[in-house]
């Protein structure tokens, strides 16, 4: 489904990713781990088409089609979803309105019928309930005054509504207490289907107790330096990243 070939990315003239390769098939869940500043968010932003992430080399293919010429919104229309590490606030924009606009623009792009308001309200409410997201948050402005956990759950709610083909979650687990973590993990597990691929970016192994990944990759200094199964995550927890850095150097 997703093929990243020899990807190099610069941000403000500084090279952040250099020669990154990754292959993700449908039905798979991949975890990407790595120390702070190693380029995890940059990878996520690059996949989503953030204009600040300039691809200097390599390619990104989604279902055999290059994403490089597509704008952010057209990548979203192709089924790419990014749950942000820091979801932004949209003052004055009602959360429900935002989700309606989002959902309908994606449906429009696929030539599907737009939801009418009633269908939509029911759908959103139902999904919010499954994610134990307080209904009151639907009436508030997008992420405005939300707690960290509420913002993350709001991201998962949108992910569930938009039914992406490829979902990327950037540190959705950080800053959550154990209950919130369970709810989020639950939401993600609900979305694991044979048709969908998921990339979990995290730097704690904790999340992986609840979402069992098929593969674990370690990203250091803009490159994937080690890949393995979930054993790798446990090892990392035990020995830290230096173990890999030293191992790679040796």
């Amino acid at each position: 489904m997703l093929t990243i070939k020899n990807l190099s990315v610069t941000v403000s003239g500084k090279e952040i990713l250099n020669g990154l390769n990754l292959e993700v098939n449908k039905g798979e869940t991949h975890a990407i781990m790595g120390p702070n500043g190693s380029g995890k968010s940059t990878l996520a932003y690059t996949l989503a088409g953030h204009k600040e992430c300039v691809v200097s080399n390599g390619n990104i293919l989604l279902n055999h089609e290059s994403l490089l010429d597509l704008d952010t919104e057209h990548r979203a229309h192709k089924g790419l979803f990014l749950a942000m590490q820091y979801p932004v606030e949209l003052p004055g924009v009602n959360n429900m309105t935002f989700m309606r606009e989002s959902l309908n623009s994606i449906r429009r792009s696929k030539g599907e019928k737009e939801y009418d308001s009633l269908e939509l309200i029911n759908l959103i409410r139902q999904t919010a309930k499954q994610l134990k997201l307080d209904e009151k948050l639907l009436k508030r402005n997008v992420n405005e005054g939300f707690s960290g956990g509420e913002k993350k759950r709001n991201e998962i709610l949108q992910m569930a509504l938009l039914e992406p083909k490829l979902a990327i979650l950037d540190e959705t687990d950080s800053g959550l207490d154990i209950d919130a973590l369970r709810i989020i993990a639950n939401g993600v597990n609900m979305l694991r289907t044979p048709e969908r691929a998921i990339i979990l970016i995290t730097h704690y192994q904790r999340l992986l107790d609840y979402i069992q990944p098929d593969y674990v990759h370690v990203l250091i200094d803009g490159k994937i330096v080690r890949s393995g199964d979930k054993q790798l995550a446990l090892e990392l927890e035990d020995k830290g990243y230096n173990w890999i850095v030293d191992g790679a150097a040796a």
Partner: peptide, 30 residues
């Protein structure tokens, strides 16, 4: 305030065009 590019990116990531995003944020402002 200004409409930040992070706000636009967020909206576009959710499938909205930039035009719709600006219009939605401005309507929210008003």
């Amino acid at each position: 305030s200004k409409i930040s590019d992070e706000q636009l990116f967020y909206c576009q990531q959710r499938g909205l065009s930039e035009e719709d995003a600006v219009s939605m944020i401005v309507n929210g402002f008003c």
